[in-house]
Write a protein that binds this DNA or RNA. Sequence first.
DNA 1: TTGATTTTACTGCCAAAGCGGTAATTTATT
DNA 2: AATAAATTACCGCTTTGGCAGTAAAATCAA
Lengths: 84, 84
Amino acid sequence: MDAKKIGQVVLFHRKTAGLSREACAELAGVGKTVVYDLEQGKPTIQLDTLQKILAVLNIKIVLESPMMQKFEQEISKKMEDEKG
Amino acid sequence: MDAKKIGQVVLFHRKTAGLSREACAELAGVGKTVVYDLEQGKPTIQLDTLQKILAVLNIKIVLESPMMQKFEQEISKKMEDEKG
DNA sequence: TTGATTTTACTGCCAAAGCGGTAATTTATT
DNA sequence: AATAAATTACCGCTTTGGCAGTAAAATCAA
């Protein structure tokens, strides 16, 4: 999932939502320029800015790796330790 | 998946890979400071910087939404149109 | 213990991300 | 065809992310 693909995803979802870039930007609380840049595939967009726009479009970021289950196990173990 | 969780994921994977922050940063071609900041949950890290670090740790970013299949259909349709 | 490695945490500097404004072009709508 | 809306693309400005360097604290290995 490179920046260009992410831009395409955002464009598609925004169009489907019937939002203009400016409306989308306003809902996300960011400038119109970043929405434009993002859809153009700009790779240097900041994570929080991306997240704000994705939130408006009901898209979520998921990390995938061969070790994610192990990570989830460790996390829930840690939670238990902290609780009890 | 917020920035804090991403930081935890990165930390876990880096540790499992047996890499120091500096070694990880060098492999990713980024500064040690961003690896530190990222693992601390800094939300303003840039997408390309994040991707470089994730690539080293064999983690990939996936976008999820109720409309992703529809998007994939549109994309492949567009590919066909552009080809033939 | 001791020495080495790693991590935490700060610094100043530079490049650039994000911002609103503007205007030309393109696309819808009536 | 005419009007409105949306998109593209530029411009300066301000803020800040990423960088290397440093040093103290914590962790690990001999």
